[in-house]
Computed example of a mutant assay.
Amino acid sequence: MSEPVNKKSKTYHNNKWKHHQTKKHSLENGLKGFLCTSNFSEKGCVREAYNLLNTYADQLYPQELNAEIDKKTPAKDITDELNEEIQNVNTEAKSINRRFQATDTGAKNCVFIKTTLNDPTELATTIANEIFETKEQKTKDLLRLVPIQFVCKATIASVTANIVPLLEKYFKAEKKTFGIVFNRRFNNSVDKDGLIAEIAKMVVAINAEHKVDLKNPNIVILLEVIKSWCLISILPDYYKLKKYNLLELSIKKDDNIPQTE
């Protein structure tokens, strides 16, 4: 007679397998991409972000799109197609080379979409500028689409070490006015004033002619702290582009619509 099935063990292994299959990508050191926020549907936010990013990326980087097309051979029989599908079953392997990939931040209605693009700022700024000029509303659930140039641990030592290449890129030339914007979610351990003071000293050390302007700076140094991570960007026209709030960018001057985040 066969041995009785251990239901508890079977349930445990099924749950363990299911958990493995649905495991979300998480923030990690060195990522770059886009911080996406929503007040409504997180799923809708991600869907709209994917559509927007892919559409504009295909326009900005047609060489990448052509390279993908060239990889596809015109003559494939059903066996080749089935074999290709089998090779693509492992979604973890596929996501490694995916141009955009949603990543869990641990904060509600706040998603990070990592990218393999060299410069997420160019893509997000292109989208924001077009919406600003045309006043065409392109999203409903996606509010902000903020380019992020580097992710690191949310400590003064880590941030000041990793921000050096970005500061040198943006502040080595002519004098500029700058502001430092610090936002935090689920983190009370970072010394906000201490971090801002350290970064301001680093900017002035690069060029003593740079001046702080909190109202209308040429460049904003953005620090978005989420739990134990700090998302860093240096962004010209941050306030002109409404902090990359796509809905606010689409509002016409004569529209009497209350502003969102």
Rank of each mutant, 00 (worst) to 15 (best):
K72C: 14
H20G: 12
Q63D: 12
N88P: 05
T91D: 09
N39C: 05
L60I: 06
A75M: 14
L27I: 08
T73N: 06
N66C: 15
V5C: 11
T79N: 13
D77L: 02
E64D: 13
A67D: 08
H13D: 15
Y61M: 05
F34E: 01
I78R: 04
Q63S: 15
K32I: 02
F34S: 00
L27E: 00
E64S: 06
E28T: 14
H25C: 04
L27N: 02
D70W: 14
I96W: 04
E28R: 13
K16W: 06
P74M: 13
N83V: 05
H20K: 11
K18T: 07
A93G: 05
S9T: 09
S26R: 14
L53P: 02
K32E: 00
A57H: 06
D80A: 13
A49I: 01
N90K: 05
L31V: 03
E85H: 06
P4V: 13
N39A: 07
D70H: 15
I78A: 05
I78G: 01
I86R: 10
I86F: 12
K24H: 14
D58I: 00
H20V: 12
K10T: 08
A75I: 14
K8Q: 11
K8D: 06
G33S: 11
Y50A: 05
D70S: 15
D80C: 13
V5F: 05
H13T: 11
K7Y: 15
T73Q: 05
T11L: 15
K18A: 10
K32T: 00
E28L: 14
Q87A: 07
L82A: 11
I69T: 03
